[in-house]
């Protein structure tokens, strides 16, 4: 009977809901990559990138605030844009934006896993499958668009770009539900 047993060893396990560690580490690493790469090619963007990176890391590991993490990712992306304005190296920009978006996705996934499951849960398999899928999609998409970018000898003409842009807008609006 429980009322005659020592209750110390029967206490409930602890449950906490911090962001999932594996995804958090990957998200920070991706953001770091983006910051390093853009910083190397356009040092102007480095301070901004580091600031965003600090936001991502602090949001994930210290304050456990999803909003801070997303804002951090946003700032990292602004650094990528700044880099694009000062050093227009398509490959680098493609890679940096890919890394930023991966960081965004994994960061928000870390919070979602943390909320729905717990720190004590075995989550690595689920997290790695998700991360792998995201990275795979990103790499394939980046590869495809880089391929298209390379095909015409003179790069993209303005009307072509405008059409691309418009099509993208329409697709996105249709996607917004």
């Amino acid at each position: 009977m429980s009322f005659e047993t020592d209750t110390d060893e029967m206490g409930a396990v602890e449950v906490t809901h911090s962001p999932a560690r594996f995804s958090s580490v990957l998200a920070t690493a991706a953001a770091l990559l983006a910051v390093i790469v853009t910083g190397l090619f356009a040092p102007v963007s480095a301070p901004l990138g580091l600031f965003g990176l600090a936001g991502v890391a602090a949001g994930l590991f210290v304050f456990e605030s999803e909003r801070l993490t997303i804002a951090g990712t946003g700032i990292v992306f602004v650094a990528v844009l700044v880099c694009g304005i000062f050093a227009d190296v398509p490959e680098i920009l493609l890679f940096a934006s890919l890394a930023t978006i991966v960081s965004f996705d994994l960061g928000s996934n870390a919070f979602s896993v943390g909320r729905q499951l717990s720190d004590q849960t075995e989550t690595q398999r689920g997290e790695s499958v998700h991360a792998a899928a995201t990275i795979f999609v990103g790499v394939v998409a980046a590869g495809l668009s880089y391929g298209i970018f390379l095909v015409p000898s003179g790069g993209l003409t303005i009307p072509a770009l405008a059409l691309l842009l418009l099509s993208a807008l329409f697709l996105i609006w249709s996607i917004r539900q």
Partner: peptide, 21 residues
């Protein structure tokens, strides 16, 4: 921003976002 500044690299970077959308 890529269109505004005429930087094809930035437009290329934007395609990744479209892909994820």
């Amino acid at each position: 921003i890529g269109t505004l500044t005429f930087k094809p690299g930035l437009m290329l970077a934007g395609t990744v976002g479209i892909a994820y959308t």
